[in-house]
Design a protein around this nucleic acid. Structure first.
Lengths: 200, 200
DNA sequence: TAAAGCTGGCTGAATGCTCATTCATTATTC
DNA sequence: GAATAATGAATGAGCATTCAGCCAGCTTTA
């Protein structure tokens, strides 16, 4: 052992790579151990079981993403809800493209997680979605977004649109459209869809 | 043996229930067999293996959905692309709500399928998405939709929005919004987003 | 008419493989 | 020389898949 080098995150990073390659169910603990250059048993010193690795991974990574995008929104969008949607879209797609392996894991496993881990409520993910509904509410207060759009519906529609688009890239990584072009398209559709006609 | 009663579809229907309850990986062949009132071995007379059940299920069920929605579009939307989007959205959500168990399976497993069944290309699903891009192209030809919207991006965004919304219902079946209200909201956002300003 | 033989669908217990998890042992650190 | 951290072989549970045999109904034979 040369260095202790934070095994916890070393294992999580290895897990992202392995889960993205094989999917959660086909990934063996021994695969993750090998990838993290650690013994099989060591993993159990840091995590309770295989699911716990996946959940920790969600919490930590989505947590980071939330931080990033909140910072970006505060620093660049000075209270302009249209701009905020555009920034959110661009950041989401950019992140999915930069971190392909993480994106695959989130794409594939996030949906399942509620299924087989009944007790796990995925609060970080809800928090991520709530950034969108927050933007909508702000836009409605400022009178630039139509008041009849339900923020709770909009947040899912907007996230779903981005997520499904990102899925295309993951499945066939040679995108025909650029990130900015796509983020632009999607936010344009939604902004035109939600904007107050008077404000146009 | 009283009746031969089409074991193939009896097994598929059982599989939908079991997969929706436990997820593909946790579902045992013996669970499906019991649910279908059939011996474990019988399943292998109709399907090659566990994956084959899932793939057959996708193909057949998505095939039915495609048929339904195409019929509906032909009979009710007489060449009005705005109306077509509204019909597609309503039909999709209605179907996900009527067939909760199927919806769960599609939601949870469709994403994964490309992962662990590398060879399976999921052509039926593409066909379903292409209905949307077809509507967009038609709208652009007729001059009611903006020509700068990319149909290939729009189809994913629209589907993604519907799919993510449906997911909410699956996770917490006591919807706060009605199907029609939601379908209305989503298609309104997208129609406003894609419509040619002149045509407004 | 009845017994005997066939046939193809169906059965479900047995097989064999794949791991997640454990824990006695070993290495490292202070 | 404790105490702490890490190791990895052994355990045992879980389950997809197989296949030898069963059975219902039909055909042939006497």
């Amino acid at each position: 052992m040369i260095r202790t080098a934070d095994k916890h995150s070393k294992i999580l990073e290895a897990a992202i790579r392995v889960f993205s390659r094989k999917g959660f169910f086909h990934a063996r603990i021994s695969d993750i151990a090998k990838e993290a250059q650690v013994a099989d048993g060591t993993i159990y010193l840091y995590f309770n079981n295989k699911y716990d690795i996946l959940i920790s991974l969600f919490e930590e990574e989505i947590g980071k993403i939330i931080m990033e995008v909140k910072l970006l929104l505060e620093s660049k969008a000075d209270d302009n809800p249209r701009e905020m949607l555009r920034i959110f879209a661009t950041h989401h797609l950019q992140m999915m493209d930069d971190r392909r392996e993480l994106a695959e894991v989130l794409q594939m496993e996030l949906r399942q997680s509620n299924k087989f881990m009944r007790e796990y409520r995925n609060t970080k993910f809800s928090e991520y979605l709530d950034i969108i509904s927050g933007i909508v509410r702000k836009g409605q207060e400022l009178g630039v977004f139509r008041p009849d759009v339900l923020p709770g519906v909009f947040k899912r529609a907007f996230f779903g649109a981005l997520d499904e688009t990102a899925r295309l890239w993951i499945l066939s990584p040679d995108h025909s459209y650029s990130i900015h072009e796509t983020a632009e398209q999607i936010s344009a559709i939604f902004i035109n869809g939600i904007i107050q006609p008077a404000a146009r």
